[in-house]
Design a protein around this nucleic acid. Structure first.
Length: 490
DNA sequence: AAAAAAC
């Protein structure tokens, strides 16, 4: 059971309080849209919505950068629907309904989610939408396309399939949206994207949205836009201020124990744990499962059916933990997610921003914990640079685990029965490595050639704990009869 | 060092 939301209110910091947020019903929108927005429970606009919607309504191209979880989907779908309603083209025979708006997303789940939102906002209108993505039967998609849709939401691969099968014609597209635009423009997606864009009319309105835009991507994006307006709220590449970000020095052996302990000590209802590889994620999910956590896994080696089931079960609260690759890093809106863990430090700093953006959405508070090993020094430096924040590494002492069952093979002649055998995990027989002060100094983004900063800090730094989590040192020492040796001084 | 997206 989840605890009642804590009544704590952030300290009043009225110094930078801007004008009260504008309401949706002040916008020049069709009553059908106003009604749909009201139905969905939204009253006032987020900053990105307040800035972007009027510009999209003017018909301008937009590059929109806003923090994660601030309503970018509504920022483009509502004004696009409005434009489609306003410019309902009577010259097009009712029998022919060409695709007028195309929204592209980098993952199937995200495409699905965007489609749900579009449907929600379009529900009182005649505009029809459909989503197409891979991993599922093409036939229902084909039928829907042939019946005619005004708004098409898609992932690139399957859309190309439909184009080649002549299931849809895109030469009447008036509006294009690239959701998670920087990802869509990256090297892995670019060829498919260019191919798709080649089927579209040159004369169109194009919208690019993401929480992160690197300077290179910004430059590249210019070539797909006409006289665009850059809409930014706050600084780009930023993480929500409501998310508590922690970086903890760990070893590969400690990581899972640290996560479990934090979940327990903070009574965290649900969390996403990100890993860098599909195999690693699958293994980690099985391990959490063995630990008794209700665990769902989400990665590209799973069937689409399994992927959707995992995500749904997690969203419904039937799972404690969702272990995922970066397929879940972007865009996914999971209401009230209290915490995100990075079991692995992401390879791209941008993905760090997106991953932790799954928590602290819509102004809620959230916790983001990244587990850092020695070999992650470079990646941490990249993240520091991107989010323009000094990263300090906390240390963490893992509480002793309950006795484990003996896993030694039978032929060792060990009594196996149900008798638990105390097998101290290697990391706990000696003082745990993560409690070593080597990581304790504020980490300095160092150059490759220099020894990393923690090497220098190793000898001198006192252990500074993550006070809210840390176990009293005594407890560990008492249980394992190990005392922390003085730093080797030779 | 990877993941994602088509069959």
């Amino acid at each position: 059971m989840s605890e009642p939301a804590s009544p704590q209110v952030p300290p009043a910091d009225a110094s930078t309080e801007p004008a009260p947020p504008a309401r949706f019903d002040t916008l020049p929108l069709d009553p059908k849209l106003i009604r749909a927005v009201a139905d969905s429970g939204y009253l006032t606009m987020t900053p990105i919505q307040a800035k972007a919607i009027p510009i999209v309504l003017q018909g301008r191209d937009v590059m929109g950068a806003a923090q994660t979880g601030t309503g970018k989907t509504a920022a483009f779908s509502i004004p696009l629907l409005q434009r489609m309603l306003k410019h309902e083209n009577p010259s097009v025979s009712p029998a022919r309904h060409p695709v007028r708006a195309l929204v592209l997303a980098p993952t199937r789940e995200l495409a699905d989610q965007v489609a749900e939102n579009v449907k929600k906002y379009a529900k009182h209108t005649q505009l029809r939408s459909v989503v197409v993505f891979g991993g599922v039967d093409m036939k229902p998609q084909t039928a829907a396309l042939k019946a005619g849709v005004e708004v098409l939401i898609a992932t690139p691969g399957r859309l190309l399939d439909h184009i080649e099968a002549k299931n849809c014609v895109l030469n009447q597209v008036e509006y294009v949206v690239l959701d998670e635009a920087d990802r869509m423009l990256d090297i892995g997606f670019l060829p498919d994207l260019q191919r798709i864009l080649s089927f579209l009319p040159k004369q169109r309105q194009t919208l690019l949205f993401s929480a992160t835009f690197s300077p290179e991507i910004k430059r590249l994006a210019q070539s797909y836009l006409q006289d665009p307006i850059l809409v930014e709220t706050a600084r780009p590449n930023q993480t929500a201020s409501t998310v508590e970000q922690r970086f903890i020095a760990a070893t590969d052996d400690d990581k899972r124990a640290i996560i479990k302990q934090i979940l327990k000590e903070r009574s965290i209802r649900q969390a996403i744990v990100f890993g860098n590889s599909k195999l690693g994620v699958a293994r980690l999910a099985r391990a959490f499962e063995r630990d008794g956590l209700r665990t769902a896994a989400l990665h590209g080696d799973k069937s689409q059916d399994e992927r959707l089931k995992s995500l749904d079960a997690f969203k419904r609260g039937e799972m404690d933990v969702l272990v995922a690759t970066d397929v879940a890093a972007r865009g996914l809106d999971i209401a009230d997610l209290p915490a995100v863990f990075n079991f692995d430090v992401p390879f791209n700093a941008e993905d760090y921003v997106h991953r932790i953006g799954r928590t602290g959405r819509a102004g809620a508070s959230g916790l983001a914990v990244t587990l850092v090993t020695k070999s992650d020094a470079r990646l941490i430096a990249d993240i520091e640079k991107l989010i323009k924040r000094k990263i300090e590494l906390d240390t963490f002492e893992v509480a002793p685990e309950r006795p484990r069952y003996d896993r030694r093979p039978r032929d060792e002649g060990v009594e196996r029965e149900d008798r638990p055998v105390r097998v101290a995990p290697p990391a706990l027989r000696a003082p745990v490595k993560s409690a070593d002060p080597f990581f304790d100094k504020p980490y300095e983004a160092s150059t490759r050639d220099e020894p990393p900063a923690w090497e220098k800090a190793k000898a001198a730094a006192p252990v500074k704990g993550l006070s809210s989590y840390i176990k009293p040192k005594k407890q560990v020492a008492a249980l394992f009869g190990a005392k922390k040796p003085a730093p080797a001084e030779s």
